[in-house]
Simulated scan of single mutants.
Amino acid sequence: MVSRTLAQGKPLSVTLFAFDRGEEISSHSSPGDALVYILDGESEITIGNEKHIVKSGEAIVMPNNVPHGLVAQERFKMLLIVIFNLS
């Protein structure tokens, strides 16, 4: 997996990721709501107990404080945007 942070601040973070087939991010939770946009390829993304196959051109939202993780079904690239609650 390769990642590049494009923007990082208190209200949000924007990161570009590239994965090889079979690479994964283990289940974890985040204090911010996250939007994943698949730029290329396909991934299985688990949010809570639900598994989703997300493909190039599709997006999925991962709510804050809900465990989530992913496994690359093939090589893929994604843009991750996390919005943090500042209150």
Score class of each variant (00 low, 15 high):
Met1Lys: 05
Met1Cys: 08
Val2His: 09
Arg4Lys: 09
Arg4Ala: 06
Gly9Ala: 10
Lys10Met: 10
Leu12Asn: 09
Leu12Cys: 11
Ser13Lys: 08
Ser13Gly: 09
Ser13Phe: 04
Phe17Lys: 04
Phe19Tyr: 15
Phe19Asn: 03
Phe19Lys: 02
Arg21Asn: 13
Glu24Met: 10
Glu24Gly: 04
Ser26Cys: 08
Ser27Cys: 04
Ser27Gly: 11
Ser29Asn: 13
Tyr37Glu: 12
Ile38Gly: 02
Leu39Phe: 05
Glu44Thr: 04
Ile45Cys: 00
Thr46Ser: 07
Ile47Gln: 04
Gly48Cys: 03
Glu50Asp: 15
Lys51Arg: 13
Lys51Phe: 04
Val54Cys: 07
Val54Ser: 06
Ser56Ala: 14
Gly57Glu: 05
Gly57Cys: 06
Glu58Phe: 05
Ala59Glu: 15
Ala59Asp: 15
Met62His: 09
Met62Arg: 07
Asn64Met: 12
Asn65Leu: 12
Asn65Pro: 06
Val66Ala: 08
Leu70Thr: 05
Ala72Lys: 03
Glu74His: 04
Arg75Gly: 14
Lys77Tyr: 13
Met78Leu: 14
Leu79Asp: 01
Leu79Ser: 02
Leu79Ala: 04
Leu80Asp: 00
Leu80Ile: 06
Leu80Phe: 02
Ile83Lys: 07
Asn85His: 13
Ser87Cys: 07
Ser87Trp: 12
